[in-house]
Design a protein around this nucleic acid. Structure first.
Length: 260
DNA sequence: ATGCCGACAATCTGTCGA
């Protein structure tokens, strides 16, 4: 069995105790973090090392940033998304190899800020992610692409009035790009096990979104075909959002059965 | 709800998030 969790923590330094509590309680093999909002030297390694977890970190000052916490050794395959230009300095992707699986941890651009340029960046990022998935499929790799996608793929993935019309998370071009990624052969783990339930992974801090359950489902674990066949459990750790000083996102865990 | 909350950098207000 392998257990992998993705979690946009909205600052790993602010959420250090929440992350430590989660590791101690849930013991995932891999914890994929997004929006750590710090540089690598600021990452609170010791708090997690004490629990038996090491970290590989791709950080930057103030914004973005991703990390993978792991108990067994991992190999870093890519510290940024293949296909994006060198000039792109956003810390949004890290891919590791662990326990016979390639795991891409991603923080996809929001696309609502920066005008046309900001939205074009989102679409370029999604096109590169799709191309990367195709290349992994062509190589017959077992892989997971997980993280904060900043996409509501269908109208079932956001609460009524939780987003304004025309938001970058639900524009037709955004959804088309997400579908194109899925159509490389990926399975949305949550929908594979819960095809028609109302499920969210994010609730805005504003406007009482949590109290009104005005949420979004934007955190996904997408599985390559053989891994999809091994999928046994998906857990959306909704209780994390009710804690004091929570992230606006909650963790999403998948469990995959051992290979036969 | 083109900003209600929250994090960050800077220094108190601006930017970003989704």
């Amino acid at each position: 069995m392998i257990k992998v969790t993705t979690w946009n923590v909205n600052s790993v330094r602010t959420r250090e105790s929440h992350v430590a509590d989660f590791l101690a309680r849930e013991q995932p093999d891999l914890l994929l973090l997004q929006e750590i909002k710090c540089e690598e030297h600021q990452f609170p390694r010791m708090a997690f090392k004490n629990l038996g977890y090491d970290a590989v970190v791709v950080g930057q000052k103030s914004y973005n940033g991703v990390a993978v916490l792991h108990r067994a050794p991992v190999e870093v395959l890519h510290p940024k998304l293949p296909g994006m230009p060198e000039s792109d300095t956003h810390a949004r992707f890290i891919e590791v190899r662990a326990q016979g699986i390639t795991v891409g941890n991603l923080y996809l651009p929001n696309g609502n800020s920066g005008g046309d340029e900001g939205y074009s960046y989102k679409l370029a990022w999604m096109a590169a992610l799709r191309a990367h998935s195709e290349s992994l499929m062509d190589a017959d790799t077992d892989f997971i692409l997980a993280g904060d996608y900043n996409v509501c793929p269908t109208d079932a993935d956001f609460a009524p009035r939780a987003l304004p019309a025309g938001d970058a998370l639900l524009r037709p071009e955004t959804r088309a790009a997400f579908n194109a990624l899925i159509w490389t052969g990926l399975t949305d783990a949550t929908r594979a096990l819960y095809p028609s339930e109302t499920l969210y992974t994010f609730w805005d801090y504003q406007a009482g979104a949590w109290d009104r359950n005005a949420g979004l489902r934007i955190d996904f674990q997408l599985l390559s075909p053989r891994l999809a066949e091994r999928l046994t459990h998906v857990v959306i750790h909704k209780d994390e959002r009710a804690k004091p000083q929570p992230s606006d996102h909650v963790p999403v865990t998948v469990k995959l059965a051992k290979t036969a």
